[in-house]
C-alpha cells in the first residue's frame, strides 16, 4: 500500500471529522452557550478585581484581559485538536482497540493524534482572538511587529508543548490502564492559566511551568503581546518545546512496545 504523507493524513482526518460534526448544527448553539458561560465568569472576576485595585503584580486590566484572550484561544485549540484524540487514545488503550490503529501502514503517533477533532470547539479560538483584539486595542503601548511575531511563535510552541504533555500523560495509560479521569485533572489545572503564572506562589509556578507547561503556553504569549517579554523566555521556550517533542516521542515508542493489545 502506498504511504501517504503525514500532513495529508492529518488533513483527511480533519475533513472527515468536520463533515461529520457539521451535521449537528444544534451543537453550535450549545458550544456558544458554553463559551459564553466561561467567558462571563472570567470577565466577572476581572471586573470584581478591578473594582478594588488597578493592577495585580504589575498586570493592568487590559493586560489581564489579553491573558484571558490567550487562555480562551488556547483552550479552544486544546479542546478542538488535542484532547479529543488523546481521550480516544486512552479509551483504545483501555479497551484494547488500539490494535486497529497500530496495524495501519502509517506513523502510529501521527495517526492517534489526528483521529478525533471537535470542530465546534474552534469557536473558542475565534472568541479568544476577539477578546485578545479588544485587549490589544485598550493597551497603552502599541504592539510592535517583533512582539506580534514572538506572540505567534510562542503560541505555536505552546500548543506543541501542550500536545506533548498530553501525549506523555496518555502514554502513561499503557501502564496504568484506567486514566479516563485524568482529563478532569487537566481541565482543573488548566483553569489556573487564566491568570499570568507570575502571580502564583513559587511551588505552583514551577508546577505550571514544568509539569503542565501553562506558563509557556499561555503566560509567555501574553507577555509577548503586552511587550513584557525578554529574550531569555523565548530561548527557554524553544529549548523546552524541542525537548518535549523528542522525549514524548521516545516515551510513546516505549509505551507502544509495552502495549499488550486486545488479543493478549
Amino acid at each position: 500500500m502506498k504511504n501517504i504523507s503525514r500532513t495529508r493524513l492529518a488533513w483527511l482526518h480533519f475533513r472527515v471529522s468536520a463533515l461529520n460534526e457539521l451535521q449537528y448544527r444544534a451543537n453550535f448553539w450549545l458550544q456558544l452557550a458554553q463559551s459564553a458561560v466561561w467567558l462571563t465568569s472570567g470577565l466577572v472576576v476581572l471586573a470584581l478585581v478591578f473594582s478594588r485595585t488597578d493592577e495585580i503584580k504589575g498586570w493592568t486590566r487590559p493586560e489581564l484581559l489579553a491573558v484571558v484572550g490567550v487562555f480562551t484561544l488556547m483552550g479552544g485549540v486544546i479542546r478542538a485538536f488535542i484532547q479529543p484524540a488523546m481521550q480516544r487514545l486512552l479509551t483504545d488503550i483501555r479497551e484494547g482497540t488500539l490494535d486497529f490503529a497500530l496495524t495501519r501502514p502509517a506513523d502510529a503517533q501521527v495517526l492517534v493524534s489526528v483521529r478525533e477533532m471537535r470542530i465546534w470547539q474552534t469557536l473558542d479560538i475565534l472568541i479568544g482572538a476577539g477578546v485578545l483584539t479588544v485587549a490589544v486595542v485598550q493597551l497603552d503601548e502599541s504592539v510592535g511587529l517583533g512582539d506580534a511575531l514572538a506572540f505567534a511563535a510562542l503560541l505555536l510552541a505552546g500548543s506543541v508543548m501542550i500536545y506533548c504533555c498530553w501525549l506523555i500523560i496518555s502514554t502513561g495509560a499503557f501502564w496504568l490502564v484506567r486514566m479516563e479521569n485524568v482529563q478532569e485533572l487537566f481541565d482543573g489545572v488548566y483553569r489556573a492559566g487564566q491568570y499570568p503564572i507570575t502571580i502564583y506562589p513559587g511551588w505552583l509556578r514551577a508546577g505550571l511551568t514544568f509539569v503542565i507547561p501553562l506558563g509557556f503556553a499561555i503566560t509567555a504569549p501574553s507577555q509577548a503581546i503586552t511587550s513584557r517579554l525578554d529574550a531569555g523566555t523565548v530561548v527557554v521556550c524553544a529549548v523546552t518545546a524541542s525537548a518535549l517533542v523528542v522525549s514524548s516521542r521516545a516515551f510513546w515508542r516505549v509505551g507502544v512496545r509495552h502495549y499488550a493489545g486486545a488479543s493478549a
Partner: peptide, 10 residues
C-alpha cells in the same frame, strides 16, 4: 482523587 484534585485548582 483525580476528580477532587482537579477541582481544587479553581
Amino acid at each position: 482523587y483525580f476528580y477532587m484534585v482537579g477541582m481544587v485548582a479553581e
